[in-house]
């Protein structure tokens, strides 16, 4: 998977999930339709008119890559933040630091979080500001992010398991389900330990192992 796109810069630190998608828009029972409320209170004023200064409303900028300031995605565990970014059309977010839960949520939804050095991030902001048409390439197999037409690139980290999930379009559940026998064996051991006072399990002492059909 190679992503080649222009980028939208958001050079703010600590962009929290309440900014990405405010809580009042979390009332949907589906994972669709959150893109329209992405950065709602920065993007639109109280009357619902676009805020001209905000970068997503600036016609100079477009693309599938969001380049954001340090510590992106802190706060709530709402996966809606990842859904909103994807819904808007982003495929990757570049920052020098990501909050834990956001990063997991992004990976679980195939939104690629690319963590770069603060120096590289600073340069990216400068380059994109100078030329909004700048093309950025994110090469996942080789874990390299680069700026087209310039000798500027950096390697980025992603754990091997998640990288494979990304490349093969696999999610965690099928992998975990393949270990069901081990899970049940673990439970049996746990119940035995609990009855001997060596465990504090949330399991009842007489578990039901049947699986609903």
């Amino acid at each position: 998977m190679k992503l080649r796109s222009m980028a939208i810069p958001l050079p703010l630190e600590n962009v929290d999930t309440d900014q990405i998608i405010p809580a009042r828009f979390l009332k949907s029972t589906s994972a669709e339709g959150f893109g329209k409320d992405l950065f709602r209170d920065w993007r639109f004023d109280e009357q619902g008119n676009p805020v001209k200064d905000f970068v997503l409303n600036n016609p100079m900028y477009s693309g599938q890559i969001l380049v954001a300031g340090n510590n992106f995605g802190g706060g709530s565990s709402r996966e809606h933040a990842a859904w909103a970014l994807l819904g808007f059309g982003f495929k990757a977010v570049v920052s020098s630091f990501f909050a834990d839960i956001f990063k997991n949520n992004a990976l679980n939804n195939f939104l690629l979080p690319v963590q770069v050095s603060p120096a590289f991030l600073k340069k990216l902001f400068e380059i994109i500001e100078k030329d909004p048409q700048t093309i950025i390439t994110i090469d996942l197999p080789n874990q390299i992010i680069s700026v087209e037409g310039m000798n500027l690139k950096e390697e980025f980290e992603i754990n091997a398991y998640k990288k494979n999930c990304f490349l093969d379009g696999l999610d965690d559940i099928s992998y975990i389900l393949s270990m069901q026998d081990k899970i049940e064996e673990f439970e049996r051991k746990k119940i035995k330990n609990t009855s001997k006072g060596r465990e504090s399990s949330g399991l009842s002492r007489k578990p039901t192992f049947e699986v609903r059909s």
Binding site: S77, N104, N105, I173, L177
Partner: peptide
């Protein structure tokens, strides 16, 4: 996150 909620429900 919600994907993980699903994991826990299922496994």
């Amino acid at each position: 996150g919600t994907s993980e909620v699903e994991q826990v429900l299922a496994t």
